[in-house]
Design a protein around this nucleic acid. Structure first.
Length: 522
DNA sequence: CGGTTTTGACCTGCGC
DNA sequence: GCGCAGGTCAAAACCG
């Protein structure tokens, strides 16, 4: 019995690195930096002044630049590495400082000259520090990103290797074969664990921009914890025959085999897509075979069970059920990841659900780790870029789920400016305005504008769904950004001590804003 | 004839 | 232990 539902794609065990490690995390907003001492440093980017408050901040920067472990300032020559540099921006800042000090010089020209010199120096120092910090952090982010990509690749390679090892042996699994399989999996888990530990150690070695990556490394370790622990009092077993997610399924020799952690944890997650459709099933690009139908309690509409038939032994399944309140709404829930290449059409849906599932898992695991899980019935909602879409994240028992809701009456007239909304306290509307990624929706938009009185026919609604899903997923940057944004919002509900230094009241919104700000600029 | 759908039986987990 | 509900199996029916 499949007890968890995952997005239908080969899913790395952690979120997309590009979403988490931002090459330029401070663009477009205030510069927040946290030292190991948890003491904040806040700057209005590029707007230094010489008032008393800012002077204090500048002094803090000087102070912490020596204390922080983040920024290696080993050589003496790098103490103020950019002090000698000149740029138009710097000149402007210095000019501004001089203007202010000039006004003061009305009282005393000597004093004014002195103030001007001090402000001039402070401005240069500050800019130099900021620039140096940014460069170093960018380098560091790049390094961490590469490490994560490497870990992802390593994981995928191992997973593929395990799959190939399992496949030919599944039909004739004797005791020896089962032992071999156990050994392979054990090695896989050990390697993954050592990777995670290495990564975590490296990150622990002293970085202030590392908490995100530490989260990921922590997730890898949590992965192992979950795997080692008992779920519902019994190990997670897989039927060797076709990798069926049957709990307590046994190998032919009666032994049980632990599923690799990624599968176990991902199976804990469901990714649902709600869409308006008259068809019995939305076209997600995959081939499915119905293997069961059941009347669910409280819903007169039967629930259909489908299995992916694009590859023998593909463990991906999905449930399709109509909404009781509105029969035109079709809810499709995905589980598992494909063990075969997907056609482009299927990649769209798969990518979207993958991002959602990865995001959810990444956050839920790190949250549960800290024992500080957010509201178990409601983690967050986000309106997806197709304007009418909403992602509902729920951690309610027995497993967390992500619902991509594409059913809200599409206001296609506004589809040309799709945006994201985060209905949280202190929420901010985030504009996603990459029109090239929404060509399908815009076609529908044009159609709708041309015939505003005509409702979108059911078939067109499916097209909208496909276009929306494709638009969401076609751009890996956006799915990554979505994952990071929602993840950051969820993270905002249980503040990390290290992030308490942020200068914004809502760290989640701030980070999400930055993520999408950045995405917009790409 | 091979693949898919239908449908009743079966299995499992969970709550009482 | 029992009943319920969700999920899966597998034989029969169906279809192209």
């Amino acid at each position: 019995m499949a007890k968890g539902w995952v997005s239908p794609l080969l899913i790395p065990p952690f979120g997309t690195p590009t979403a988490i490690l931002d090459p330029d995390p401070f663009r477009g907003r205030g510069f927040n930096c946290t030292s190991d001492t948890n003491k904040p440093m806040s700057f209005g980017a590029g707007s230094p002044s010489n008032n008393e408050e800012d002077r204090v901040v500048v002094n803090e920067l000087d102070f912490f630049s020596d204390e922080r472990k983040v920024t290696p300032r080993g050589d003496a020559g790098a103490r103020f590495p950019i002090e000698k540099e000149t740029s138009s921006h710097e000149s402007d800042v210095n000019t501004g400082l001089r203007l202010v000090s000039d006004s003061r010089s009305e009282k005393s020209s000597d004093e004014g000259r002195s103030l001007s010199d001090v402000a001039d120096k402070l401005g240069r120092n500050e800019l130099g520090h900021l620039h140096a910090e940014l460069q170093l952090m960018n380098l560091e982010n790049r390094r961490l990103k590469e490490m994560l990509v490497q870990a992802c690749n390593s994981y995928n390679a191992l997973q593929a290797h395990l799959a190939t090892l399992m496949q030919p042996q599944q039909n004739n699994l004797g005791p020896t074969a089962a032992q071999h399989e156990n050994n392979v999996e054990r090695k896989l888990l050990e390697k993954k664990k050592s990777e995670a530990i290495a990564l975590k150690n490296l990150l622990d070695s002293g970085d202030s921009i590392a908490p995100r990556a530490q989260d990921i490394a922590g997730n890898l370790l949590t992965d192992k914890k979950i795997r080692d622990g008992k779920r519902s009092g019994s190990p997670i077993d897989f039927e060797a025959q076709d990798c069926k997610p049957n709990k307590n399924a046994r190998l032919s020799n009666g032994t049980t085999v632990d599923q690799p952690s990624a599968d176990v944890t991902m199976r804990k997650t469901r990714v649902s897509v709600r869409a308006i459709s008259e068809a019995s099933m939305i076209n997600d690009g995959c081939q499915w075979r119905k293997y069961g139908q059941k009347m669910a309690k409280g819903n007169p509409c039967p629930r259909a069970y489908y299995r992916c038939t694009m590859s023998a032994g593909c463990p991906v399944r999905k449930q399709v059920q109509r909404c009781q309140e509105d029969r035109s709404i079709l809810t499709t829930t995905y589980e598992g990841h494909h063990n075969h290449p997907l056609p482009p059409a299927a990649m769209s849906m798969a990518s979207a659900t993958t991002a959602a599932a990865s995001m959810l898992l990444s956050r839920s695991m790190s949250s549960s780790d800290s024992g500080n899980f957010v509201n178990p019935n409601f983690l967050g909602r986000a309106i997806l870029p197709c304007t009418s879409s909403m992602a509902t994240i729920s951690a309610s028992a027995p497993f967390p789920s992500v619902t991509l809701d594409l059913t809200h009456s599409p206001n296609l007239q506004t589809a040309q400016t799709p945006h994201l909304q985060f209905p949280f306290p202190g929420q901010e509307t985030l504009i996603y305005n990459n029109q090239s990624q929404f060509s399908g929706l815009q076609l529908m938009s044009d159609h709708h504008q041309a015939q505003p009185s005509q409702p979108v026919p059911p078939v067109a609604a499916d097209t909208v769904l496909s276009a929306a899903t494709a638009a969401i997923a076609a751009d890996p940057n956006f799915t990554a950004a979505l994952a990071a944004a929602i993840s950051s919002i969820i993270g905002g509900a249980h503040p990390n001590p290290n992030s308490s230094a942020t200068s914004l009241s809502d760290p989640g919104s701030e980070t999400a804003n930055a993520v999408f700000d950045r995405y917009e600029q790409q």
